[in-house]
Write a protein that binds this DNA or RNA. Structure first.
Lengths: 343, 343
DNA sequence: GTTAGCACTCATTGAAGCTGAGTGCTAATT
DNA sequence: AATTAGCACTCAGCTTCAATGAGTGCTAAC
């Protein structure tokens, strides 16, 4: 167990290193206001902290730098919650000046503003459309061979799929099909559509349509493609100005990862609701070695809808970022809740 | 006017520098097979070429490097068209394995493969939807206040806009409106819709709908937002491996530009049909100082639809890139032409 | 338990010197 | 008159070396 003095020293080291990006030495520590004992004492304490794994040296005679364990302890126990200043608050609230149904724009603006406020990279996972409820299906034939199926949800989200028309299907078949689909599927969540089609619609189609199974498989097929939540980024290049990324090869791996959306999902998705902090190797991703990722979820009611995240160096301003994310996710949640309660 | 020998020397210098990224000296030139005169002669010729502005030195005693003027001359007069090898051709043709109506996927794959084949950054401007012809309009009310308007084109492209319903409009008004719109606007190019609405539809609406003008403005408004062609990128981080971008600040400006799509449009858009080459400052963009941009258009019939482009260092393999772009744009054009001729 | 003092380490900086790839110029050669 | 050999010169880049200073650990005194 760490003594109070050790905690104080650890905290000051982390704070100082976050600010300066320079290893922290005993002499410079001893000069701080918070600290009333000599550099020699600090050296002794630092030796202990190092033995315990909370801090490390970059070389034998260098100052100390927090280890991942040190950051973890700092985040878990030493973080002094920091109130946002008024300017930050009003900047965040300016996000919601858009008309609320232009939700994509709100999300995009959130990403941009988060990255501008923090100078880190922001990642926002758009609201999952998969449990939006179906409002209407339309099928519009383009020519003899192809048609577009359009799915509109109660939230105004529109999905569309082009597909080959089975050659035996004629206009009246299509119309009947659409009617049946609308009758049976309105109000069903997108993610349940496929299920429902086989369970409830199949039989009806059989009664009314020749070659019903071809038609049905065609439609079911077009629904199989996952409704992907969109990712939005802000400040992709911000990491270039962080001193820990002066090395081209590190930048390259990191930017490469950021540009592969499919690698981002696992990083930010399987988190529980609320604020989550992953430090360095906790992200299980070699490109994230020197990075921390802080995520927050936004939701409507109890259902969490999407995620906002900040990707920065492990030497990140945790306190500030957490405050910003908390604030923004709260606002997003309330905007969304308002939006959805209308329906 | 340059002598044949000067042309030869210029060509070899550019070729060699493109390959090696190292300033080219007279001695190493004299050793090449193509060159049968001594290094002293070459030095004299190089002095002349330098005076004429085709090559330059990086410092007083360094070898020579092509200037922008030198690249320009090389591209305009010295380029030996290079045939693609079979492997490249088959890789490019693999792009078209997708079902042709998944055109976005084809475009995306084109971007990826171009960047993989060249190790540069590729930019593909998706087909302009703006002159697709309208196939069908649907308006689907979400609740009392909002509705989604859906525009389907003959090519299967779907646009949608959420808008506030004027409070005085009821369901039958909406239905009538949609009928009128479909009757009058089917076959009209998206870009002409706004025009046509005011010229032809306004009157009809007035006859059938109360508060017709509110309705009309609402609909016209939702069409005002430009139908933006989408940009697709490949190999955004490829420039990091180019030796001229070992400098972080150069990389930063370049990547920042790439991430601002609105800055990319002017770079690749106002070009005439066919292959266009912009070298360094010819791009009129400070972030592009050390870059060249080669663009090619693809089209359907006479109408050019979109652009594919390669962004590389000025020290780019012009010949190869041009061949690749020519080949791919021809293929895209023929695929698109097939696709559109069906309708 | 705390601190002053001291010997030690090591990254960083800058000067000095060397090397090698390049140049321009001149005089000899073809 | 054009080409080339020869030579003096330049300069980036590398290596070496010493000095600097911010840091350490340890010990003995307070």
């Amino acid at each position: 167990m760490l003594t109070d003095r050790q905690l104080l020293i650890l905290q000051v080291i982390v704070d100082d290193f976050i600010r300066s990006a320079q290893p922290v030495g005993s002499r410079s520590l001893s000069k701080k206001d918070e600290i009333s004992f000599s550099s020699a004492t600090i050296r002794n304490e630092m030796a202990d902290l190092e033995e315990l794994g909370y801090i490390e040296k970059t070389h034998t005679s260098s100052g100390r730098v927090p280890s991942e364990k040190g950051y973890r302890y700092y985040v878990d126990h030493l973080l002094s919650p920091q109130a946002l200043n008024k300017q930050d608050i009003s900047i965040i609230q300016s996000i919601f000046a858009e008309k609320i149904f232009e939700f994509e724009k709100i999300i995009q603006k959130s990403a941009r503003i988060l990255s501008e406020l923090t100078n880190y990279t922001s990642i926002v996972l758009g609201p999952a459309a998969s449990f939006n409820k179906l409002k209407r299906i339309q099928i519009i034939p383009l020519n003899k061979e192809t048609a577009v199926a359009i799915f509109v949800t109660d939230s105004g989200h529109v999905e569309n799929r082009t597909f080959y028309l089975p050659p035996t299907v004629d206009a009246s078949d299509l119309e009947k099909t659409v009617n049946i689909l609308n009758e049976r599927l309105t109000g069903v969540a997108l993610e349940d559509l496929n299920d429902k089609i086989y369970k409830e619609v199949a039989m009806l189609l059989r009664q009314h349509i020749r070659n019903y199974d071809l038609m049905m498989h065609t439609i079911a097929d077009s629904l199989k493609m996952p409704v992907n939540e969109k990712l939005f980024f802000g400040g992709k290049t911000n990491m270039l100005s962080q001193p820990e990324f002066h090395d081209i090869s590190k930048i390259r791996t990191l930017l490469q990862m950021i540009d592969h959306e499919e690698w981002i999902y696992p990083l930010i998705k399987n988190d529980s609701a609320g604020i989550n902090i992953k430090i360095g190797r906790e992200n299980n991703n070699s490109a994230m070695e020197n990075c921390s990722l802080i995520t927050a979820t936004y939701s409507v009611g109890a259902e969490s809808l999407g995620t906002i995240a900040i990707l920065g160096p492990t030497r990140m301003e945790y306190s500030r970022v957490i405050s910003l994310l908390q604030f923004l996710s709260k606002d997003l949640t309330s905007v969304l809740t308002n939006l959805y309660q209308k329906y």
